[in-house]
Every structure is written in C-alpha cells, then in structure tokens.
Simulated scan of single mutants.
Amino acid sequence: MSLFQDIESIEDHRVDANKDYELADIIFLTVAAVLCGANGWKAIKIFGEAQLDWLREYRDFSHGIPTRHSIGRIIRGIKAESLVSSFINFSNAVREKDGKEHISFDGKVVRGSKHTEKDALQLMTAMVVENGLIIYQKETATKKPTKYLSCNQC
C-alpha cells in the first residue's frame, strides 16, 4: 500500500458543494510543506504555490492551491485519529516490507501516583509488539492516546 492510498482512505466530512479541492491533495500539500519547514497556513500556501509543479508529479491539484483559510479549514475538519491511523498503517507497511517489527505506543496512568497537590503520573511507552520489549518510556502531561498506536518513529 502506498502513502497516497492511505491518505485517500481518510474520510472527507465536507459537503459535496465544498469539495473544490481533493482532501488527499490538501493533506499531501500540508505534510510536504511542514516537512520543508512551513509553520502556518500562509506558509503552507506559499510553499504550495512555489512547488506546484513538483506537487503535481504526485497528485492532480486540478484546482491549484487553495487559500490559506481553506487549507486551515480543510485540515481542521479531519479527524486526527483517522489521519494518524493512515500514517501508522503506511509506516507499519513499510516496516513489514523491510522486515522490521511493529512499534506500539500506549499511555498509562501509574496507579497510586495521585497526590493532593500533584496530578497522577502518566507515562507514554513505546514497545516492540512481537516480543513485548519496551524501548522507550516518557512521562507525559496527558494519557493520550489511550489505545495502542503503532508507529515507525523508534
């Protein structure tokens, strides 16, 4: 499976009248721009306009690059869980193809760590699924995500 197939599987919640721009095009634009250092909707639009020929090597962009406001509205309308899941699926497909293990992340609250003046201790753990080996653990401010997520960041 390709990254584009995973991105195209993300549910588009916009009404048909507001679909001048393909959701997968906008996601690809945003990811590419952010990876190249863009840090806002305006910067993403500027990147898209400057790199439109390159972007069109991978996606259609039949209506060009939307306004910065449209980019922001479209990206904010995506359910974060579905976007993360598509990247996780792609990452683990690449890991499997290369013969690497799946990595999962899990958030937990440490039982008995809640004190009157402090919040409970919360940990995010990265683990190799196949053998249960914990490869990284970090204290976090929240327990999210609360279910296993697999990723290739480790």
Rank of each mutant, 00 (worst) to 15 (best):
D25W: 04
Y21K: 05
D25Q: 03
H115E: 14
A126Q: 00
L29R: 01
A24S: 12
L52C: 00
G112M: 06
T116Q: 15
K118H: 09
H115M: 13
T116L: 13
L3V: 00
A33H: 00
I10Y: 02
K147H: 14
K19N: 10
K45C: 07
V15W: 09
D25H: 00
R68H: 11
Y58K: 10
S86C: 09
V84Y: 11
A93F: 12
W41A: 06
L121D: 10
T125S: 15
A50F: 08
V128D: 10
Y21N: 03
I103L: 06
K45R: 07
S113P: 01
K144I: 11
K100D: 12
V128E: 11
Y58M: 10
D12F: 00
P66A: 03
I135N: 01
I135W: 00
G48C: 02
E117Y: 14
T116P: 14
I10A: 07
I65D: 04
I26T: 02
G107L: 02
E22Y: 08
S150F: 12
G77P: 09
H63W: 02
E96K: 09
F4H: 14
C154T: 14
Q5L: 10
S91P: 04
R111I: 05
L133G: 05
S82D: 13
T67A: 08
K79T: 07
K97V: 11
I65V: 06
S9L: 09
